[in-house]
């Protein structure tokens, strides 16, 4: 295993612990918005679809890449908007 891959694995391990720490003691009231917010964040997969579509050099790849970007955007935009709508409900009057 080369050093670059190894350092990525270090990063993964650290992020796993960080993720657990971040969610540690969240009141159950916020479970749904939290899940929804996390759902929007994994929409970061869209970056990969943009790269893959940007490098597509034939019609098939371009079409599939196009679909991937649309779906990824759905995940990101829908995710953040839905979360925001849920949280709007918690606003103090």
């Amino acid at each position: 295993m080369d050093p670059a891959t190894l350092s990525l694995i270090y990063l993964v391990v650290l992020m796993i612990f960080l993720g657990i720490e971040l969610i540690g003691h969240v009141p159950s009231v916020l479970h749904t918005p939290l899940m929804s917010g996390a759902n929007a964040i994994h929409g970061v997969v869209i970056i990969g679809s943009i790269i893959v579509m940007g490098m597509a050099d034939d019609a098939l790849s371009l079409t599939l890449g196009f679909i991937a970007v649309v779906l990824g955007t759905l995940n990101v935009v829908g995710g953040f908007v839905v979360t925001n709508r849920m949280l709007e409900m918690f606003k103090k009057k």
Binding site: M15, G19, M35, A38, H42, V45, I51
Partner: peptide
């Protein structure tokens, strides 16, 4: 799955975002 994409492209933001959600989501 997003983090896997991060591995493929050595893309830090995909890796970090993906793994964070992976671990936080599992705990949740």
């Amino acid at each position: 799955a997003a983090a896997c994409g991060g591995f493929v492209y050595d893309n830090m933001v995909m890796l970090i975002g993906g793994i964070l959600v992976g671990s936080a989501g599992t705990l949740l």
